[in-house]
Design a protein around this nucleic acid. Structure first.
Lengths: 304, 304
DNA sequence: ATTATGTTTTTTGCAGATAAAGAACAAGTT
DNA sequence: AACTTGTTCTTTATCTGCAAAAAACATAAT
């Protein structure tokens, strides 16, 4: 309302949109369920639910008769809030920072200016600051007191260190995986993933971009078998890096993905065989070539 | 000066104290070196150096004659700022939070209230918030949007997951360690640590408390051999946990430390032998008993 | 040309304010 | 007794403001 925006009402708007979706499948005259029921359904506090109901009433979508709330009319397109207003500032900053990283491709040692980013992102410095503090856990940036943040990666050393740990963790997880009971849901998921791979292999010509999503799904499944929060968390960092890697290195993407699918299929087959030796061989083989690809893309970046 | 304190001047006070220390070893009439030289020596910006010099002048410790600054009198005890005023708010919050954890011993699921902590610590909510964001990387607390932080550990599962990764990392580091060239400084440091162990063993009756420091030094040396930032960082988490563990579990401390020293000595000997098999055996043996101790102390805590 | 000090501009660290969101309390209905 | 809605109290998310600290720009002196 006034110029000095405070907390932001993304939760309200998101919940309001959810309510609109909900109303869309109801008819005028239908009764609206209780606040507590909506609270559970929309995952928001009752305070927010009440605000939404009040707004729906004010907009003539429902009648607010205490415990007897009824639908008055079906929602129109213009009743919903734009998607961009339904995410909190902190989530927006996160997204904008990632885009900024891709765009500017900062190099090791580059300084990150809070004020500058805040201006670019259209948020206050605190928003940027808070994000950077959280992001620092990935070890890609580093703070020097009173003198701002510095970018640390993405160097060859970083990639090598990353892969050293990745291999350690994934090998351990893969061994845990083959030890999971045969009736576990993980095996079904693995079978599904295998089929997806075969399907993608047939349609590789036009769908090779879809590999990155499948890659993530597969490795995450394996890593989750470790049931170790540190190992699973670490895979979060790997995905982040790969997300960028896929954006950077468009060269030979189709060929690389094709090769990776074949490696994955070997690896998956080894998992189904439950033979630790075979798992080790196929897993290492795949990770080695994944590392090679990543390093190549770094060299390419550095050279031009 | 006025009631609304802003950034805080810990850097100034710390630097001022450093300057006082420096003046203490000079005689009246001696010439004070250049601002740039002091800047390098005291690791602060020239802005801060100038402020310090101005203050020293105002307090009659030096004469401020442009480029000709001379010592007027030796500093007295009352010239220095109290130590507590020389650390930044963020460092103070960190320290207070750790003390708070020890004191209140929060359990899994407990909520952490930013406002409450801010009041207890005598700082603003922003200070607490910023700290919690940074601290979240240790995975001991977790945020739920709009609903505050929750304590996650310190459970048996947490300890088991921690040790799984610790063993993986330390084994890898130990193997890297024995591969370092014989003229590396690490071997000298290891020898020193060995001697410290033997010395502590002789004086175990009265100095068993000193083990925790030595323990950290030893394992850090081994982990650093990995030259992997993720592995080295992880040891930061281990130290943090152990710091608390040592505070919690006072039972049998002397006996436990005595046993650990012997295990360390075996492990160190194995490292000197450069025999991977021996290193593996002694390292695993030590980590197994370290885990047992930690688990015992958790059970004890849970039971009363 | 380097190295000194003097001055101005920019950025960071932290407090404080406030709307939004959550939680707790109260009282009424089936 | 279990659910309603109504009301109040507490906590979080975010912006703004300002002094401290750093960085950049001048200018003077060896």
């Amino acid at each position: 309302m006034n110029g000095v925006a405070m907390k932001g009402d993304a939760v309200f708007k998101r919940t309001y949109n959810r309510a609109i979706d909900h109303l869309a499948i109801m008819k005028p005259g239908d009764i609206v369920e209780s606040e507590n029921s909506l609270k559970r359904k929309f995952e928001a506090s009752r305070t927010t639910i009440r605000k939404v109901l009040a707004e729906l009433g004010a907009n003539g979508l429902i009648s607010l008769d205490g415990t007897n709330k009824t639908v008055l009319r079906s929602p129109k397109q213009k009743d919903i809030f734009p998607r961009s207003e339904t995410t909190s500032i902190s989530v927006q900053v996160e997204k904008k920072f990632m885009e900024w990283m891709l765009r500017t491709d900062p190099k090791h040692g580059d300084v990150i200016n809070e004020l500058d980013l805040a201006r670019q992102f259209g948020v206050s410095t605190s928003g940027v600051r808070e994000f950077l503090n959280r992001f620092s856990r990935f070890r890609l940036i580093e703070k020097r007191p009173n003198a701002g943040w510095r970018f640390r990666g993405f160097t060859r050393e970083f990639a090598l260190e990353l892969f050293e740990v990745r291999e350690l963790f994934e090998m351990r997880s893969a061994i845990s995986f083959i030890a999971t009971p045969p009736d576990s849901a993980a095996w079904i998921e693995l079978k599904e993933i295998e089929l997806e791979h075969r399907k993608l292999l047939r349609e590789i010509a036009k769908r090779f971009h879809d590999f990155s999503e499948l890659d993530k799904r597969f490795h995450q499944l394996v890593n989750n078998a470790s049931k170790n929060r540190f190992i699973m968390d670490f895979y979060g960092l790997i995905s982040l890096i790969f997300h960028y890697h896929y954006q950077w290195n468009k060269l030979d993407e189709r060929k690389r993905n094709h090769a990776a699918i074949l490696e994955h299929l070997d690896y998956i087959e080894a998992l189904f065989s439950r033979d630790p030796k075979r798992v080790e061989t196929t897993c290492k083989n795949h990770l080695r070539s994944a590392r090679r690809t990543l390093l190549e893309s770094i060299e390419t970046l550095v050279s031009h």
